[in-house]
């Protein structure tokens, strides 16, 4: 994920048009192709599709998402597409998936095309309605709880597999391996956190669908207020508290926690919406784990698998933010130590 192969807009336009002609016929019209900002592991492009050039109402706003490379952190694109189809059909708020091409991509890497909500992101929505932040926070927390309450065995049993061992052991092992492989120097606090997690994994926890990256910039809105949860590539079956802990990492004025709700209000809202109590000790474990996971993501961005491509400056910026994670790990480890001392 560290490297990006340059994509000229014209080349992409040509390849995408060929793909769409194969689906809809020669009268198909593709317009307004433009790259959207953001994304550490994939590019996102917006475009409008018309299958009948004479009828304005047939124009459909769409999004194309393509990976920079096949070096994904989690779900492969084809699996993610089926997951999105099932979630959409089950009424989970996701953008409608339209196409997936992962074998014979005319644009050099696999891609997904999905509905584009003609709306806004959470920052703009909060700026438009500052008084509504708490209500928005409660409704987003209810969406997250709804994802966890989904009967995943029924809806996704043939798409996602539960972890072979317990979720905590499995997730710690996966992300610790990535973090350790990608670490460039002695990352003392990161290694200390990995060691702590290995020794304190909870014995049992419920298994639910978790989004894996449920945060403000993965939520989009249309003008009617409809919300869609995007970027499901890190979704998997695990302890729902893993998801809460990852959401709690991000605490800017635009985030669910810190921006819309306080930590305690967020947990209370989740307990209310899910009907289950949040075990604080287990949540602590996942909060430390969240630091290791985000460290692994940042550090992996600094590795390029290709000699032909450079590491993008935006990924170097993320790598340089490691001290932010280390500082939080130090706080959490001190809390764990001092609580046990007091006990």
């Amino acid at each position: 994920m560290g490297a990006v192969a340059p994509t000229a807009t014209d080349q992409l336009h040509e390849g995408l048009r060929a793909f769409l002609v194969a689906q809809y016929g020669a009268s198909v019209k593709l317009s307004g192709l433009r790259r959207l900002t953001g994304g550490t592991s994939h590019e996102t492009w917006a475009f409008d599709l018309s299958t009948s050039p004479h009828a304005k109402e047939s124009i459909r706003p769409l999004i194309l998402r393509r990976d920079f490379s096949d070096d994904r952190l989690d779900l492969d694109l084809a699996t993610e597409f089926v997951l999105l189809q099932r979630l959409y059909a089950a009424g989970v708020p996701v953008a409608e998936p339209v196409f997936c091409e992962h074998r014979n991509s005319p644009i050099s890497t696999p891609f997904i095309i999905s509905e584009r909500l003609p709306g806004t992101d959470i920052r703009k929505r909060m700026a438009q309605n500052k008084d509504g932040a708490r209500a928005l926070g409660l409704s987003l927390t209810a969406i997250q709880a709804g994802i966890h309450c989904l009967d995943w065995r029924k809806v996704l049993g043939d798409v996602l597999s539960p972890p072979a061992t317990n979720a905590a052991v499995s997730e710690v092992s996966r992300w610790s391996r990535i973090a350790t492989e990608c670490a460039r120097e002695p990352q003392t606090l990161l290694f200390a956190a990995i060691d702590w997690l290995g020794a304190h994994a909870p014995d049992d926890s419920p298994s639910t669908l978790v989004h894996g990256d449920f945060k403000a910039n993965n939520l989009v809105f249309d003008p009617t207020g409809r919300v869609a949860v995007i970027d499901w590539e890190l979704s998997h079956i695990s302890d729902p508290l893993e998801d809460l802990a990852f959401t709690m990492l991000w605490t800017s004025q635009y985030d669910l926690v810190g921006g819309m709700l306080s930590e305690e209000d967020y947990i209370a809202a989740y307990e209310h919406a899910s009907g289950s109590r949040v075990d604080r000790e287990r949540l602590f474990f996942w909060r430390l784990f969240a630091q290791v996971k985000v460290a692994a993501i940042f550090l992996k961005g600094l590795r390029t698998e290709s000699v032909e491509a450079s590491i993008r400056p935006s990924l170097v910026m993320l790598g340089r933010a490691m001290p932010w994670i280390e500082q939080r790990i130090a706080e959490l480890l001190r809390n764990a130590l001092n609580e046990r001392n007091a006990a």
């Binding site: 003392t188 606090l189 280390e326």
Partner: peptide
Amino acid sequence: LGRHAETRLRWQSV
């Protein structure tokens, strides 16, 4: 180590 990390927060922009 927490203090050392805090010192470096000045040199990042995320």
